[in-house]
Simulated assay, not measured.
Amino acid sequence: MSWSRTTRAGVLAVTALSLPLLAACGDDADGKAAGAAKEPAAQDSSLVVYSGRSEDLIAPLLKDLEKATGAKVEVRYGDSAELAAQLLEEGDKTKADLFFSQDAGALGALGKNGRLAELPQKSLDAVDETFRADDGMWVGVSGRARVIAYNGDKVKDAPVSVNDLTKPQWKGKIGYAPTNASFQAFVTGMRVMQGDDATRAWLKDFKANEPQVYEKNGAVLDAVDAGKAELGLINHYYWYEKAAEVGEDKLKAKLSFPTKGDPGALVNVAGVGILKGTDADAAARKAVEFLLSEQAQTYFADETHEYPLAAGVSSKDELPALDSIGTPEVDLSKLESLDVTLGMLQEAGMV
């Protein structure tokens, strides 16, 4: 079985807004409740993974996953929100055994709708409780911090809060990617922290400050580095990836990590959950264990420049310690309310 990668452009908004409807469809397929147990297979001969992480990023790791589980790994790549909606629509008839999501919100949507099985306590305990589901339905395997990139030649006192970005001094000088999942997760986190009214007001003021629109985080960083934008909202690993490519001393772009508890300090995760009723439960559990192993965590640290969340692995990038970032106290499962966020972004004229 093989699938081609799907494209995010033009799909995310429709998919996320469809999650509630698709959940209803998946809950009563042919009169069966979603998550009803399947007849067990004779053995776990294959493991079907729905991956919201891109093929070029994790394909090498999934080859090692095949060795670790002893099962043939078959992967469907796509956008995390789109795949979550697909899994809700498929219900208990899905062929997927494991969902590897780029963000916690998509996992939260599946957990909320009863499509995930509770993970073994050993796997949950490998990760700080901040980066796993309270109900044990998913666990984070790598983390990425939101940061404010700034051009060191043009900016001497970089902002340390996203609330500073609505000040007149930054009018027309900020780059961001409003259709990118990481920006939308950040806005969702702000909604969870501060409420919809406060978030709506921030979006209105931020938009009035005439930020520069880019399609991706990488383009935002490039604009900041070139001086086309003085500030940019990105995930931390884009900077470390570029620094590894061209040399830190060649970069004019620098990073400001927002202060403790600021909405801009959100640390989101890529994580995994096992589909309820899977025929390959043993292989799926082994897969989760592997993704939390020293080998996989080192891969995330060294190859994707993300925060390893388990196994005591340190990053060669000398990242600020997670506990020093001061990520806000947000239940990451609640980032699943992306449909409301998209409505706000549309209302603000951002998407």
Rank of each mutant, 00 (worst) to 15 (best):
G10M: 05
T15M: 09
L22N: 09
L22E: 08
A24H: 12
A29G: 09
P40C: 02
P40W: 05
D56H: 14
I58G: 04
L61F: 02
E66Q: 13
K72V: 00
Y77F: 04
Y77K: 11
Y77A: 03
S80H: 08
S80P: 02
S80M: 04
E82W: 13
Q86K: 14
E90H: 14
D92S: 11
D92V: 01
D97H: 06
A109T: 04
G111S: 14
L116Q: 00
L116P: 01
Q121E: 09
Q121P: 03
Q121H: 09
Q121L: 09
D128E: 15
E129C: 10
R132S: 03
A133W: 00
D135V: 01
G136V: 04
S142W: 02
G143R: 05
V147L: 07
Y150E: 03
Y150V: 02
N151M: 10
N151D: 04
K156F: 05
V160N: 15
V162Q: 13
K167D: 09
K167W: 07
P168M: 13
G175K: 11
A177F: 00
F183M: 07
V187G: 00
V187I: 09
M193N: 03
G195C: 04
A201L: 13
K204D: 01
F206C: 00
A208R: 15
E210H: 15
N217P: 04
G218C: 08
L221E: 04
A226R: 15
G227S: 07
A229H: 06
N235C: 05
K242H: 09
K242P: 00
E245L: 14
D249C: 11
D249K: 15
A253R: 08
T259K: 15
G261E: 05
P263N: 06
G264V: 00
G271T: 02
V272Q: 08
I274N: 00
L275W: 07
L275Y: 09
G277C: 08
Q295D: 13
D302S: 14
H305G: 01
G312S: 11
D317E: 12
P320R: 13
G326M: 08
T327P: 04
S333D: 01
M344S: 07
E347G: 04
